[in-house]
Design a protein around this nucleic acid. Structure first.
Lengths: 146, 146
DNA sequence: GTATTTGCAAAGTTTTTGCACGTGG
DNA sequence: CCACGTGCAAAAACTTTGCAAATAC
């Protein structure tokens, strides 16, 4: 549950070894993603701005893209429009997103892999579980509809 | 395999019963989606324009949204950016999308439901199988990466 | 010192909206 | 006829890009 489950040096090392520089902006963006759990670029920008105004929206976009490439964060599409980023410091997980109430249920990668693995293997396909978002209707909203 | 698997009157009835009007534009958009299989709003627009110029891009957006609400078509997010529409006249199916080569593997709803159903039920969640797109890497691209 | 990164502003892309005109029922 | 639907053009939302100044190393 620690907000900084990733070792303080791990992300730094990851940047350095890939030939990138450590900048305050990169640290701020990564911290914001970890704090927010799930966030769009805009939300990350807003979060960083509450702490400091030493960042620009373009930089947020560029930084999220970079961190994603390096595997320090993941992105999924939890709403029909706008990518959502989340930290990879916790467990990798998939999402069940309710169209009715917007609730997001997180599912452990291992559980999702157990379910989807055999089918995927049959198709010769390796799913990106951390990116997977299954849209649908949760129990509560199904009841309301009826 | 018929491009008009939907009865000529079914979609018309669906429109009428929901209090909407039959217009040439709605017919053209629905036909284009059925012809294309999978298509973004832009592609639908382009397809319609090859037959006739009696349509406007705004109308394509509005019409796709309407047809989706009525259940005559479905949409999924097969690329990281841009909804993709497909007809519901054939089998409902899910998609496996390869990030490497953009290939799209269609999976029968029944197969996907068999895999995901138990997990979903455990979470009290009813997936929208027709909307489901699983991103990942296909066999061919996995080989190339290595 | 110098190659990378950032800020800023401008442009690009995709989607939505207001409103007058057109048209299906 | 008249409410619903369309075309058009403008605006909104979101993302990317070029370039000079700033900065990590």
């Amino acid at each position: 549950m620690s907000p900084m489950a990733t070792e303080p040096t791990q992300w730094q090392a990851r940047l350095r070894e890939s030939g990138h520089r450590l900048t305050p902006q990169r640290e701020l963006v990564l911290a914001a993603v970890q704090t927010l759990g799930h966030a769009t670029p805009d939300e990350v920008y807003a979060e960083v701005r509450t702490h400091s105004d030493a960042i620009n929206l373009s930089t947020v976009y560029r930084t999220l893209e970079l961190l994603d490439e390096l595997g320090l964060i993941h992105h999924a599409h939890l709403s029909d429009r706008a990518p959502t980023y989340h930290s990879t410091s916790g467990h990798e997980h998939s999402h069940l997103v309710c169209r009715g109430c917007r609730k997001v249920i997180s599912v452990e990668r291992s559980d999702m892999e157990a379910a989807l693995g055999p089918l995927a293997e049959r198709e010769g396909f390796e799913p990106d579980y951390g990116h997977l978002a299954v849209f649908g209707t949760c129990r509560d909203c199904a009841r309301d509809d009826a």
